[in-house]
Design a binder for these strands. Sequence first.
DNA 1: ACAATAGTGTCTGTAAGACATTATGTA
DNA 2: TACATAATGTCTTACAGACACTATTGT
Lengths: 263, 263
Amino acid sequence: MNEKDFLASYNASAYNTPKGLPVDICMFTITSTKKQTVRKVLPTRDIKILLIKRKGHPYKDMWALPGGFSKEEESLYEAAKRELKEETNIGDDVHIEQLKTVYYPGRDKRGWMPTVVYFALVNEKYLQNMQAADDATEAKLFTVEEALSMSLAFDHHDIIQEAYDKIKEKMLTTSIAKEFLEDEFTIAELLQVLQVVVPEFKVEKSNFIRKMVSTETRKGLLEEVRLENGDHKMSDRNSQREARLYQFSDHMPKVSIYNSTLF
Amino acid sequence: MNEKDFLASYNASAYNTPKGLPVDICMFTITSTKKQTVRKVLPTRDIKILLIKRKGHPYKDMWALPGGFSKEEESLYEAAKRELKEETNIGDDVHIEQLKTVYYPGRDKRGWMPTVVYFALVNEKYLQNMQAADDATEAKLFTVEEALSMSLAFDHHDIIQEAYDKIKEKMLTTSIAKEFLEDEFTIAELLQVLQVVVPEFKVEKSNFIRKMVSTETRKGLLEEVRLENGDHKMSDRNSQREARLYQFSDHMPKVSIYNSTLF
DNA sequence: ACAATAGTGTCTGTAAGACATTATGTA
DNA sequence: TACATAATGTCTTACAGACACTATTGT
């Protein structure tokens, strides 16, 4: 059956879910791949998004955001989490946040079809067993750049663009960078992750490393990880020389365009 | 009929709107009232929110957010705007923005009932002819503090709290303060409006007035209004001595917790 | 010894905030 | 002339960014 026949035979009200809403998920991750170099260096990192290939009409065989319908007995948040889990088999330790709800006439050829969009930030370590999840649906990670250059189902291009813009903003104003990092990370890793998502964020690495811990207004944002004996905990995973490890603290500074002092 | 009888007789599916969604609106405004003083001073300003008194069950006679159902032939944004207009009779020149969509089991005694929440920032000058709008429904402005201390219908307390938190954040990181100001405003007015919404934002007025225009990173955020002859346009509406008038420019700086320079 | 990353020293320009002072116009 | 607000002067401390330099360790 082609799409035209499908739409002609489609009974919109049969698909309407009076007690649930369509939920779509923009799942972002940052993959890291080892560089083939003589010495240890930072891995190559890329920001990626999960897409699935549609099995049915409309937009059959096109790539789209994963999603599904929420149920009456679950919250929208729970629905998003469930859908993501069905697709990726990840655990509960995921940052998932509502982006927006979309409806305007004509957004779905089938008629009335809103969608509640969530975005998720998932550490690549949770995506190891993704294939096992559901091999009936073809799911694949694309770089965000790639995804945005493709022709996608529905208005998913615009949704991804908006989700990505949101993440770029939150990357610099909250501590969500931690979702993409190990529990304990070096400042070079932090900077790399920030710049993978927000290339416009330009600072000199050596200054960044120092200022993140030395400047008074930034104190409390990161904590140095210490060993029992009080020494700095170090890692040499990215370099010959060991680097100090850090964690985000609970302290979340706020920012303002009216004076750039954090408070 | 009391609420218990009402719920017993309530047929949820009759109210379900397969082709529309409930939309609620947090409409904020800042009222200004002249102080009774010998000399001209800044008015007293208060951040207020619009509530309506519910005419029917559930939560009959309690204060609640204004809202209604979106239609298939309009976007959610248009629905929010329409609902707000029905309530307040304001024009199209309104900042209205989606906050979030809420559903969790039990949020409405009638069963499945999500809501798409919008917040609106409306200048008080547009609310002059509010009474004319629809005198069947009782609508009233409450200070946000007051509203949050009241017992409200549904989970509207939590929704208002979240909307207010969002506005506080956006107040300091975007130029939405302009929604509450005249087209041309003094820096003292700007600061007052900022502090009415975000009391934690503390700066010394004389420094603020200077730094807003003199500091390099803030240049471009505000523009001095000039007369034809190049002189500063001034106003003495709040003081004996005239103050310079400003406008927000198109330039929107971004902020970061990782370095507090705007870019 | 070299390569690559980690981290420090030092200097310049600018911002934030405290506090004092001057400017302006009306009751 | 008194007063309330507008705006500037001045000073201290701190941050951002540039750039040079040292530190560490595996190959």
